Simulated scan of single mutants.
Amino acid sequence: MSTADKKRGLGRGLESLLPGRPTPSVPSSVVTTAKAEPEAAPKAEITGKPLEIAVELIDRNPFQTRTQFDEEKLDELAKSITASGVVQPIVVRLSDKHKEDGRYVLITGERRWLASKKAGKATVPAMVREVSNVQAMEMTIVENLQRADLNPMEQAHAYARLSREFHMTQEQMAERTGQSRASVANFLRLLKLPQAVQMLVEAGSLTFGHARALLALENAEAIEKAASKVMALNLSVRSTESMVQGIIHPELKPEKEEKPKQPVDPNVRDAQDQLRRSLGLRVQIEDKNGKGRVIIEYTGVDDFDAILSALGNK
């Protein structure tokens, strides 16, 4: 996912997902202290101001796409909250049984909520929103993407969940999250990696670029073996791409030894490398005096769709 793609899509912000929606409040009896008993069937008051809601009345976001929280950074945030309070309110929604139990469900701001609990705060400032499950999940994904908090596997699982639980197409997911369709497709392809390799990507031991290069192998055993070699030799993404192509086309190696190729123009080589990194596929440019052809190899429908999307085909 390029920086340009990210900046172009994420400028909308969370509020653009919920234009003109009212914000329900809660009775003071449930927000003044974490130990207060909620009233039965409270009557909500419409207000646009943040409320102090008891931290114990807030449940975790079921659509949270981030699975890892840095405990050291949480401790730092807790110290900051102890000293200065929560600067930016979290965002919550009414639980399905709010009228009976007065509880809320997080939409965004889980780190601030967790740090507030660590800091021993009884309440946390929160904006209450009336949103559907789809909107809540969209807001969660957008916020995390804006803050660059998701690793590639977390993003892949987030898109998969949008597809599985809300039956969104890749086009719809791209539109809702401000990404390109090719970017969404590339993240979803990561789920085809063997579980062991997915764990390496999630831990940051392998980058998104490494993962895309390894996916060209398709065979799980070959991918795991290649991933181990990348780790052992600390290969760059470009070296990984070369290694993978050598595995896929071993027959090309003798030809290189017997018949050296003509020098490739640096501009052509650079364009070829850019296309390889952009598509995550094998690309070859054959150029003779400004004329030639571009060969793009694909190994499945998803690869073919990504090529069409990159060419501007809707």
Rank of each mutant, 00 (worst) to 15 (best):
residue 192 K to C: 01
residue 236 S to C: 06
residue 153 M to Q: 01
residue 274 Q to E: 12
residue 88 Q to T: 12
residue 200 L to N: 03
residue 158 A to Y: 02
residue 147 R to Y: 04
residue 210 H to L: 06
residue 200 L to E: 08
residue 125 P to C: 10
residue 287 D to W: 07
residue 257 E to Y: 02
residue 263 P to H: 14
residue 76 E to Q: 13
residue 123 T to K: 11
residue 258 E to C: 02
residue 266 P to M: 10
residue 165 E to N: 12
residue 54 A to S: 13
residue 153 M to C: 05
residue 98 H to T: 02
residue 132 S to L: 09
residue 246 G to H: 12
residue 209 G to P: 00
residue 104 Y to N: 09
residue 22 P to G: 04
residue 56 E to K: 10
residue 124 V to F: 00
residue 83 A to Q: 09
residue 232 A to K: 14
residue 159 Y to Q: 03
residue 271 A to K: 06
residue 150 L to V: 07
residue 42 P to E: 14
residue 101 D to E: 13
residue 285 I to L: 11
residue 207 T to M: 03
residue 310 A to T: 12
residue 2 S to G: 15
residue 65 T to G: 09
residue 43 K to E: 13
residue 84 S to D: 11
residue 238 R to C: 12
residue 44 A to C: 02
residue 177 T to N: 01
residue 74 L to C: 05
residue 96 D to F: 04
residue 191 L to G: 05
residue 25 S to I: 01
residue 141 I to F: 10
residue 294 V to S: 04
residue 11 G to V: 15
residue 213 A to R: 01
residue 265 D to R: 00
residue 55 V to R: 07
residue 94 L to P: 03
residue 34 A to R: 02
residue 189 R to S: 12
residue 91 V to G: 00
residue 185 A to M: 14
residue 11 G to D: 10
residue 115 A to L: 13
residue 268 V to C: 03
residue 45 E to L: 07
residue 45 E to R: 09
residue 113 W to I: 07
residue 33 T to G: 08
residue 21 R to V: 11
residue 289 N to I: 13
residue 65 T to V: 09
residue 169 T to I: 03
residue 52 E to D: 12
residue 65 T to S: 09
residue 45 E to P: 10
residue 122 A to G: 00
residue 212 R to L: 08
residue 222 A to K: 14
residue 50 P to G: 09
residue 190 L to A: 08
residue 118 K to V: 00
residue 100 E to T: 04
residue 30 V to P: 00
residue 23 T to K: 11
residue 217 L to Y: 07
residue 66 R to P: 10
residue 203 A to K: 15
residue 59 D to Y: 01
residue 110 E to F: 01
residue 249 H to K: 15
residue 116 S to D: 08
residue 312 G to Y: 09
residue 130 E to S: 05
residue 189 R to G: 14
residue 196 A to T: 15
residue 74 L to H: 03
residue 186 N to G: 08
residue 289 N to H: 12
residue 257 E to M: 05
residue 159 Y to M: 08
residue 78 A to E: 06
residue 240 T to L: 03
residue 49 K to Y: 14
residue 269 R to L: 14
residue 183 S to T: 13
residue 33 T to F: 10
residue 160 A to G: 03
residue 193 L to R: 04
residue 293 R to S: 14
residue 121 K to N: 01
residue 314 K to N: 07
residue 94 L to Q: 12
residue 225 K to H: 12
residue 156 A to T: 03
residue 57 L to D: 00
residue 29 S to K: 15
residue 88 Q to K: 13
residue 114 L to Q: 05
residue 277 R to N: 13
residue 262 Q to V: 08
residue 179 Q to V: 01
residue 302 D to T: 07
residue 253 K to C: 04
residue 144 N to I: 07
residue 70 D to K: 06
residue 47 T to C: 05
residue 203 A to Y: 06
residue 291 K to V: 10
residue 129 R to M: 11
residue 157 H to W: 13
residue 242 S to A: 15
residue 220 A to D: 11
residue 32 T to C: 04
residue 48 G to Q: 07
residue 134 V to C: 02
residue 27 P to V: 09
residue 81 I to L: 05
residue 130 E to M: 07
residue 237 V to W: 10
residue 191 L to Y: 01
residue 204 G to A: 14
residue 141 I to L: 15
residue 232 A to S: 13
residue 306 A to G: 11
residue 268 V to I: 15
residue 215 L to T: 04
residue 71 E to C: 04
residue 62 P to A: 11
residue 43 K to P: 01
residue 101 D to G: 00
residue 52 E to R: 13
residue 171 E to C: 05
residue 304 F to L: 15
residue 174 A to F: 07
residue 312 G to L: 05
residue 190 L to T: 03
